[in-house]
């Protein structure tokens, strides 16, 4: 995967420009929201909200730190949604974007229930699942994703993955040297390398991100062990019964008597 996105959380001002740009480019309608005592808005991703800035209030040494995290599909290399999708609707493009083919999606929600980051959202009216498409229609035409293009402080960058990794590492060292000992480049190697990486000034868990994201064990058992086991066992049974049939052609009751005294 050559292209990637780097979200430098330490630079984000929570202007929500990315949210607006995403809606504008993808022609997604605004949502009616409620005030819940936070500037976070809307309160969760939805079939028509593919990125949003999450607000976190973190207390440390009697001081409150206000943290922001742009959430969206992270376009994993080892994508759980692709693994569990029973129709092949969820797939990975050459550029590394994870897309859900609307034609093939049957709304089974397997991806919704198994995504380690809880990203895909189900639309009951359309009976389909929606999420960030990594602006594949822009990227495949040499353009930058809408959110990265619009980001005023340059917190969202798009480009060659190798370059972004080294940029991310530099930012992490700078943050560590400036009072953020827990700073981390998230996504460099996680799940085979995420298509969207974060420069996190604090621990991943504070942002609600899994510390070590992985394909759920239940999914590994399901897709990597049981799925191939079914045809093997079924085939073995059919072969055994076919052999049994062939070996017993012409059998008539009473033949056991020939066995004589054997019990």
């Amino acid at each position: 995967m050559a292209k990637a996105m780097l979200i430098d959380v330490s630079k984000c001002t929570a202007c929500k420009g990315c949210q607006v740009a995403c809606k504008a480019w993808n022609e997604l309608p605004a949502e009616k929201t409620e005030f819940k005592g936070t500037y976070e808005n809307p309160l969760s991703l939805s079939p028509t909200t593919w990125t949003r800035v999450k607000f976190i209030e973190m207390a440390e040494n009697g001081e409150v730190k206000w943290l922001f995290l742009k959430t969206q599909c992270l376009h994993c290399t080892e994508a759980t949604c692709v693994k569990v999708c029973p129709t092949g609707a969820a797939h990975k493009t050459e550029e590394g974007a994870i897309l859900i083919d609307k034609e093939k999606c049957t709304g089974c929600k397997y991806c919704v229930q198994n995504c380690p980051f809880e990203i895909p959202k189900y639309d009951a009216d359309e009976n389909k699942v929606f999420k960030c498409r990594f602006c594949f229609d822009r990227v495949s035409n040499g353009l930058t994703p809408a959110c990265a293009l619009t980001c005023p402080p340059g917190a969202v960058r798009f480009g060659e993955r190798d370059e972004l990794v080294s940029l991310g590492r530099d930012r992490v060292s700078a943050l560590k040297a400036n009072g953020n000992p827990n700073a981390k480049l998230y996504g460099e190697t996680e799940l085979g390398g995420l298509g969207v990486m974060y420069v996190l000034p604090e621990k991943a868990s504070i942002y609600g991100l899994p510390k070590e994201p992985r394909v759920p064990i239940s999914v590994v058992l399901w897709e990597d062990i049981l799925k191939p086991l079914g045809p093997i066992l079924g085939g073995a049974a059919v072969a055994a019964f076919a052999l049994s049939f062939l070996l017993n052609i012409g059998y008539k009751h009473g033949e056991e008597a020939e066995e004589g005294g054997e019990k």
């Binding site: 999914v219 049981l226 799925k227 079914g230």
Partner: peptide, 15 residues
């Protein structure tokens, strides 16, 4: 999440 592999396990045994 665990029901998916268990459902499939059940299907294989029953099958």
């Amino acid at each position: 999440q665990w029901c998916f592999p268990l459902h499939e396990l059940g299907m294989i045994i029953l099958g």
